[in-house]
Protein backbone atom coordinates (compact mmCIF):
# COMPACT_ATOMS: atom_id res chain seq x y z
CA UNK A 1 0.00 0.00 0.00
CA UNK A 2 2.80 2.30 -1.02
CA UNK A 3 1.85 5.98 -0.93
CA UNK A 4 -1.71 5.10 -0.07
CA UNK A 5 -3.51 6.32 2.98
CA UNK A 6 -4.48 3.19 4.84
CA UNK A 7 -7.05 4.95 7.02
CA UNK A 8 -9.14 6.26 4.13
CA UNK A 9 -8.69 3.09 2.13
CA UNK A 10 -9.90 1.07 5.06
CA UNK A 11 -12.89 3.35 5.30
CA UNK A 12 -13.93 2.36 1.77
CA UNK A 13 -14.43 -1.27 2.61
CA UNK A 14 -15.10 -1.24 6.33
CA UNK A 15 -16.77 2.06 7.11
CA UNK A 16 -20.04 1.92 9.01
CA UNK A 17 -22.45 4.25 7.26
CA UNK A 18 -25.01 6.34 9.05
CA UNK A 19 -28.59 5.77 8.05
CA UNK A 20 -28.90 9.09 6.26
CA UNK A 21 -25.69 8.56 4.23
CA UNK A 22 -26.93 5.15 3.25
CA UNK A 23 -30.27 6.49 2.14
CA UNK A 24 -28.84 9.35 0.12
CA UNK A 25 -26.24 7.11 -1.55
CA UNK A 26 -29.03 4.72 -2.44
CA UNK A 27 -31.09 7.52 -3.91
CA UNK A 28 -28.38 8.76 -6.32
CA UNK A 29 -28.96 6.27 -9.16
CA UNK A 30 -32.72 6.79 -8.96
CA UNK A 31 -32.39 10.56 -9.04
CA UNK A 32 -30.03 10.35 -12.04
CA UNK A 33 -32.41 8.11 -13.93
CA UNK A 34 -35.40 10.36 -13.26
CA UNK A 35 -33.39 13.45 -14.25
CA UNK A 36 -32.25 11.82 -17.51
CA UNK A 37 -35.87 10.95 -18.26
CA UNK A 38 -37.07 14.48 -17.52
CA UNK A 39 -34.45 16.01 -19.81
CA UNK A 40 -35.13 13.53 -22.63
CA UNK A 41 -38.88 14.00 -22.30
CA UNK A 42 -38.53 17.78 -22.36
CA UNK A 43 -36.33 17.73 -25.48
CA UNK A 44 -38.74 15.46 -27.32
CA UNK A 45 -41.73 17.62 -26.44
CA UNK A 46 -39.99 20.77 -27.68
CA UNK A 47 -40.05 19.01 -31.05
CA UNK A 48 -43.54 17.49 -30.86
CA UNK A 49 -45.78 18.62 -27.98
CA UNK A 50 -47.90 15.46 -28.36
CA UNK A 51 -44.89 13.10 -28.13
CA UNK A 52 -46.02 9.68 -26.92
CA UNK A 53 -42.68 8.02 -26.28
CA UNK A 54 -41.57 9.94 -23.16
CA UNK A 55 -44.66 11.58 -21.66
CA UNK A 56 -44.19 14.15 -18.86
CA UNK A 57 -44.67 13.06 -15.25
CA UNK A 58 -47.96 14.93 -14.90
CA UNK A 59 -49.49 13.10 -17.83
CA UNK A 60 -48.41 9.73 -16.50
CA UNK A 61 -49.85 10.57 -13.10
CA UNK A 62 -53.16 11.56 -14.73
CA UNK A 63 -53.29 8.38 -16.81
CA UNK A 64 -52.51 6.25 -13.75
CA UNK A 65 -55.08 8.07 -11.66
CA UNK A 66 -57.66 7.49 -14.37
CA UNK A 67 -56.86 3.77 -14.53
CA UNK A 68 -57.21 3.57 -10.75
CA UNK A 69 -60.34 5.64 -10.16
CA UNK A 70 -62.42 6.03 -13.33
CA UNK A 71 -64.55 3.01 -14.33
CA UNK A 72 -63.75 1.72 -17.80
CA UNK A 73 -66.20 2.78 -20.54
CA UNK A 74 -66.69 -0.74 -21.81
CA UNK A 75 -66.55 -3.02 -18.75
CA UNK A 76 -67.30 -0.61 -15.90
CA UNK A 77 -64.28 -1.94 -13.98
CA UNK A 78 -61.56 0.10 -12.31
CA UNK A 79 -58.91 -1.25 -14.65
CA UNK A 80 -55.83 -0.90 -12.44
CA UNK A 81 -57.39 -2.85 -9.60
CA UNK A 82 -59.03 -5.53 -11.73
CA UNK A 83 -55.75 -6.01 -13.63
CA UNK A 84 -53.79 -6.18 -10.39
CA UNK A 85 -56.19 -8.67 -8.79
CA UNK A 86 -56.11 -10.93 -11.85
CA UNK A 87 -52.33 -10.87 -12.10
CA UNK A 88 -51.65 -11.35 -8.39
CA UNK A 89 -54.15 -14.23 -8.36
CA UNK A 90 -52.33 -16.00 -11.20
CA UNK A 91 -48.95 -15.28 -9.63
CA UNK A 92 -50.08 -16.50 -6.21
CA UNK A 93 -51.54 -19.77 -7.46
CA UNK A 94 -48.53 -20.36 -9.70
CA UNK A 95 -45.99 -19.79 -6.93
CA UNK A 96 -48.03 -21.83 -4.42
CA UNK A 97 -48.20 -24.82 -6.77
CA UNK A 98 -44.51 -24.44 -7.57
CA UNK A 99 -43.70 -24.33 -3.84
CA UNK A 100 -45.74 -27.48 -3.21
CA UNK A 101 -43.92 -29.31 -5.99
CA UNK A 102 -40.57 -27.97 -4.82
CA UNK A 103 -41.06 -29.15 -1.24
CA UNK A 104 -42.30 -32.62 -2.07
CA UNK A 105 -39.84 -33.33 -4.86
CA UNK A 106 -37.00 -31.49 -3.14
CA UNK A 107 -37.29 -33.58 0.04
CA UNK A 108 -37.57 -36.81 -1.95
CA UNK A 109 -34.58 -35.99 -4.13
CA UNK A 110 -32.48 -34.69 -1.28
CA UNK A 111 -33.36 -37.39 1.23
CA UNK A 112 -33.85 -40.61 -0.74
CA UNK A 113 -30.75 -41.58 -2.77
CA UNK A 114 -32.76 -43.77 -5.15
CA UNK A 115 -35.16 -40.96 -5.99
CA UNK A 116 -32.21 -38.60 -6.35
CA UNK A 117 -30.56 -40.95 -8.83
CA UNK A 118 -33.70 -41.25 -10.91
CA UNK A 119 -35.11 -37.71 -10.75
CA UNK A 120 -32.25 -35.24 -10.22
CA UNK A 121 -30.94 -35.35 -13.81
CA UNK A 122 -34.50 -35.10 -15.13
CA UNK A 123 -35.36 -32.04 -13.03
CA UNK A 124 -32.04 -30.46 -13.99
CA UNK A 125 -32.78 -31.01 -17.68
CA UNK A 126 -36.37 -29.75 -17.42
CA UNK A 127 -35.23 -26.62 -15.61
CA UNK A 128 -33.21 -25.69 -18.69
CA UNK A 129 -36.14 -25.75 -21.14
CA UNK A 130 -37.48 -22.24 -21.73
CA UNK A 131 -41.25 -22.90 -21.28
CA UNK A 132 -42.19 -20.23 -23.85
CA UNK A 133 -40.67 -22.33 -26.63
CA UNK A 134 -43.08 -25.21 -26.09
CA UNK A 135 -46.11 -22.98 -25.75
CA UNK A 136 -48.22 -24.65 -28.48
CA UNK A 137 -47.88 -27.97 -26.61
CA UNK A 138 -48.90 -26.30 -23.35
CA UNK A 139 -51.96 -24.86 -25.13
CA UNK A 140 -53.05 -28.32 -26.28
CA UNK A 141 -52.57 -29.85 -22.82
CA UNK A 142 -53.85 -27.04 -20.62
CA UNK A 143 -56.12 -25.07 -22.94
CA UNK A 144 -55.94 -21.33 -23.46
CA UNK A 145 -57.57 -20.22 -20.21
CA UNK A 146 -56.30 -19.55 -16.70
CA UNK A 147 -54.76 -23.01 -16.35
CA UNK A 148 -52.18 -22.52 -19.08
CA UNK A 149 -51.12 -19.15 -17.62
CA UNK A 150 -50.62 -20.66 -14.16
CA UNK A 151 -48.83 -23.67 -15.64
CA UNK A 152 -46.42 -21.43 -17.50
CA UNK A 153 -45.46 -19.87 -14.17
CA UNK A 154 -45.21 -23.29 -12.49
CA UNK A 155 -43.05 -24.72 -15.27
CA UNK A 156 -40.86 -21.67 -15.23
CA UNK A 157 -40.23 -21.68 -11.48
CA UNK A 158 -40.80 -25.15 -9.99
CA UNK A 159 -37.69 -26.88 -11.42
CA UNK A 160 -35.22 -24.32 -10.08
CA UNK A 161 -37.03 -24.11 -6.73
CA UNK A 162 -36.97 -27.92 -6.51
CA UNK A 163 -33.25 -27.98 -7.17
CA UNK A 164 -32.44 -25.42 -4.51
CA UNK A 165 -34.61 -27.20 -1.92
CA UNK A 166 -33.08 -30.58 -2.76
CA UNK A 167 -29.66 -29.02 -2.24
CA UNK A 168 -30.82 -27.61 1.11
CA UNK A 169 -31.87 -31.10 2.20
CA UNK A 170 -28.56 -32.56 1.09
CA UNK A 171 -26.76 -29.86 3.08
CA UNK A 172 -28.31 -30.99 6.39
CA UNK A 173 -25.39 -32.38 8.43
CA UNK A 174 -25.30 -36.17 8.24
CA UNK A 175 -24.67 -36.30 12.03
CA UNK A 176 -28.13 -34.95 12.76
CA UNK A 177 -29.76 -37.71 10.75
CA UNK A 178 -27.64 -40.39 12.40
CA UNK A 179 -28.31 -38.95 15.83
CA UNK A 180 -32.06 -38.99 15.22
CA UNK A 181 -31.84 -42.52 13.89
CA UNK A 182 -29.96 -43.70 17.00
CA UNK A 183 -32.75 -42.18 19.03
CA UNK A 184 -35.10 -44.46 17.14
CA UNK A 185 -36.62 -42.16 14.51
CA UNK A 186 -38.11 -43.77 11.42
CA UNK A 187 -37.87 -42.21 7.92
CA UNK A 188 -41.19 -40.34 8.21
CA UNK A 189 -40.23 -38.94 11.60
CA UNK A 190 -36.86 -37.88 10.17
CA UNK A 191 -38.58 -35.91 7.43
CA UNK A 192 -41.09 -34.41 9.82
CA UNK A 193 -38.80 -33.56 12.73
CA UNK A 194 -35.37 -33.06 11.19
CA UNK A 195 -35.66 -32.21 7.51
CA UNK A 196 -38.80 -30.10 7.08
CA UNK A 197 -38.21 -27.66 9.97
CA UNK A 198 -34.82 -26.85 8.55
CA UNK A 199 -35.89 -26.23 4.97
CA UNK A 200 -38.82 -23.85 5.58
CA UNK A 201 -36.59 -20.75 5.52
CA UNK A 202 -34.90 -22.15 2.40
CA UNK A 203 -38.34 -22.46 0.83
CA UNK A 204 -39.00 -18.79 1.48
CA UNK A 205 -35.66 -17.93 -0.12
CA UNK A 206 -36.49 -20.18 -3.08
CA UNK A 207 -39.88 -18.46 -3.45
CA UNK A 208 -38.23 -15.04 -3.37
CA UNK A 209 -35.85 -16.11 -6.11
CA UNK A 210 -38.64 -17.87 -8.00
CA UNK A 211 -40.73 -14.70 -8.03
CA UNK A 212 -38.29 -13.10 -10.47
CA UNK A 213 -38.94 -15.57 -13.33
CA UNK A 214 -42.55 -15.92 -12.15
CA UNK A 215 -43.26 -12.24 -12.97
CA UNK A 216 -41.63 -12.64 -16.37
CA UNK A 217 -43.73 -15.69 -17.20
CA UNK A 218 -46.87 -14.07 -15.85
CA UNK A 219 -46.45 -11.05 -18.11
CA UNK A 220 -45.61 -13.25 -21.13
CA UNK A 221 -48.62 -15.49 -20.49
CA UNK A 222 -50.92 -12.49 -20.28
CA UNK A 223 -49.46 -11.04 -23.46
CA UNK A 224 -50.28 -14.17 -25.44
CA UNK A 225 -54.00 -14.66 -24.83
CA UNK A 226 -55.96 -12.83 -22.20
CA UNK A 227 -58.88 -10.59 -21.35
CA UNK A 228 -57.26 -8.80 -18.40
CA UNK A 229 -54.19 -8.47 -16.19
CA UNK A 230 -51.19 -6.18 -15.89
CA UNK A 231 -49.31 -7.82 -18.77
CA UNK A 232 -52.44 -7.82 -20.93
CA UNK A 233 -52.90 -4.06 -20.43
CA UNK A 234 -49.28 -3.24 -21.24
CA UNK A 235 -49.27 -5.24 -24.46
CA UNK A 236 -52.69 -3.92 -25.46
CA UNK A 237 -51.89 -0.22 -25.12
CA UNK A 238 -48.47 -0.79 -26.67
CA UNK A 239 -50.45 -1.02 -29.92
CA UNK A 240 -50.88 2.72 -29.82
CA UNK A 241 -47.69 3.62 -27.99
CA UNK A 242 -49.47 4.75 -24.82
CA UNK A 243 -46.30 5.08 -22.78
CA UNK A 244 -48.23 7.28 -20.33
CA UNK A 245 -49.99 4.08 -19.22
CA UNK A 246 -47.13 1.63 -19.79
CA UNK A 247 -44.50 3.43 -17.69
CA UNK A 248 -46.70 3.80 -14.56
CA UNK A 249 -47.79 0.17 -14.97
CA UNK A 250 -44.17 -0.96 -15.10
CA UNK A 251 -43.42 1.07 -11.96
CA UNK A 252 -46.50 -0.41 -10.31
CA UNK A 253 -45.35 -3.96 -11.16
CA UNK A 254 -41.91 -3.13 -9.77
CA UNK A 255 -43.49 -1.85 -6.58
CA UNK A 256 -45.68 -4.95 -6.23
CA UNK A 257 -42.73 -7.26 -6.84
CA UNK A 258 -40.55 -5.38 -4.36
CA UNK A 259 -43.27 -5.38 -1.71
CA UNK A 260 -43.87 -9.12 -2.13
CA UNK A 261 -40.15 -9.76 -1.79
CA UNK A 262 -39.85 -7.64 1.37
CA UNK A 263 -42.95 -9.25 2.89
CA UNK A 264 -41.53 -12.74 2.37
CA UNK A 265 -38.21 -11.61 3.80
CA UNK A 266 -39.84 -10.08 6.87
CA UNK A 267 -41.96 -13.18 7.34
CA UNK A 268 -38.88 -15.39 7.21
CA UNK A 269 -37.01 -13.24 9.77
CA UNK A 270 -39.96 -13.37 12.11
CA UNK A 271 -40.94 -17.02 11.74
CA UNK A 272 -37.47 -18.50 11.43
CA UNK A 273 -35.36 -16.24 13.59
CA UNK A 274 -32.74 -18.96 14.00
CA UNK A 275 -32.03 -18.93 10.27
CA UNK A 276 -31.13 -15.23 10.25
CA UNK A 277 -28.75 -15.14 13.20
CA UNK A 278 -25.59 -14.22 11.37
CA UNK A 279 -24.52 -11.83 8.69
CA UNK A 280 -26.23 -9.15 6.62
CA UNK A 281 -28.86 -10.30 4.23
CA UNK A 282 -30.37 -8.71 1.16
Amino acid sequence: MRGGRPDTLMAVTHGKLTRSTRLSLGAIPFVLLIAAYAVGSHLRRLENPADKLLPPFGKMADAFWEMATVPDKRSGDLLLWSDTALSLGRLGVGIAVAALIAVSLGVLIGFVPRVRASLAPFVAAISLIPPITILPILFIIFGLGELSKVMLIVLGTAPIMTRSLAQAVIDIPREQIIKAETLGAGPWQLVQRVVLPQIWPKLVTAMRLGLVPAWIFLISAEAIASTGGLGYRIFLVRRYLAMDIIIPYVLWITLLAYTLDRLLHAFSRRAFRWAHLEGDSL
Binding site: L135, F139, G143, L144, I224, A225, S226, T227, F235
Partner: peptide, 20 residues
Protein backbone atom coordinates in the same frame (compact mmCIF):
# COMPACT_ATOMS: atom_id res chain seq x y z
CA UNK B 1 -69.37 -11.45 -27.10
CA UNK B 2 -66.02 -11.62 -25.28
CA UNK B 3 -62.92 -10.42 -27.08
CA UNK B 4 -59.76 -12.30 -26.06
CA UNK B 5 -56.56 -10.50 -26.99
CA UNK B 6 -54.36 -13.13 -28.62
CA UNK B 7 -50.90 -12.65 -30.09
CA UNK B 8 -50.80 -13.22 -33.86
CA UNK B 9 -47.71 -15.39 -33.41
CA UNK B 10 -49.78 -17.84 -31.36
CA UNK B 11 -53.07 -17.60 -33.25
CA UNK B 12 -52.78 -20.89 -35.15
CA UNK B 13 -51.65 -22.81 -32.07
CA UNK B 14 -54.48 -21.24 -30.09
CA UNK B 15 -57.02 -22.32 -32.71
CA UNK B 16 -56.01 -25.97 -32.29
CA UNK B 17 -57.22 -25.96 -28.66
CA UNK B 18 -60.83 -26.98 -27.98
CA UNK B 19 -61.78 -23.84 -26.03
CA UNK B 20 -61.05 -21.53 -28.97
Amino acid sequence: LTVVNTSDADMVAAYTTPDV
